[in-house]
């Protein structure tokens, strides 16, 4: 089974690096392909995306107070699909995080997503906007989830 997985991903080695600019500098992300040899031109469609103008860190909600309501973040592409989350703010706290869209394009990824995404949601709730930087033991989606969540939290002013 593992052999089949390697065969699938081994031919599609590619990388797109997107550099998000700080707010206040030009807001379009710069797309840079990184790679070497023959596979340098092979880019996984929608490989990695940073939402325009966003950064992946949060200041942990110091100062700013969030408006009540539900805020939907931007659609974030990642290696295996698209992810979009919404946060609901009530009494200045995150009361719910829901996945609006999670379209994984390959079956293995769907399987992993169905496990990983609910866990990441739970963490967003318990951390109340304190960022988890990375998840040990969960593969593929943590960056994408962090970006999608961050985007929603920014809209909420959190």
């Amino acid at each position: 089974m593992r052999r089949a997985v390697i065969a699938t991903v081994g031919t599609a080695v590619g990388l797109v690096l997107l550099l998000g600019y700080k707010a206040g500098t030009p807001s379009k992300p710069q797309e840079v392909s990184v790679g070497g040899g023959a596979a340098a031109t092979t880019t996984v469609p929608g490989a990695t995306t940073t939402a325009p103008g966003s950064t992946t860190t949060t200041t942990g909600g110091s100062g700013g107070s969030a408006t009540a309501g539900t805020f939907t973040g931007q659609l974030v592409d990642y290696a295996y699909g698209d992810l979009q989350v919404a946060v609901t703010i009530k009494d200045n706290r995150v009361s719910d995080v829901s996945v609006v869209e999670n379209e994984a394009t390959d079956p293995r990824s769907q399987m992993i997503d169905s496990e990983a995404v609910p866990i990441l949601q739970q963490e967003a709730l318990s951390a109340q906007g304190v960022n988890i930087d990375v998840v040990s033991g969960a593969t593929f989606t943590s960056d994408a989830f962090a970006q999608a969540l961050q985007s929603a939290l920014q809209k909420a002013g959190k």
Partner: peptide, 20 residues
């Protein structure tokens, strides 16, 4: 530029390696 968005992802060794 701000490297806060300096993310990259690579499929290799049967897994996904990502850089932040």
């Amino acid at each position: 530029c701000d490297a806060g968005g300096g993310l990259a992802r690579l499929e290799v060794m049967g897994t996904v390696v990502s850089f932040a």
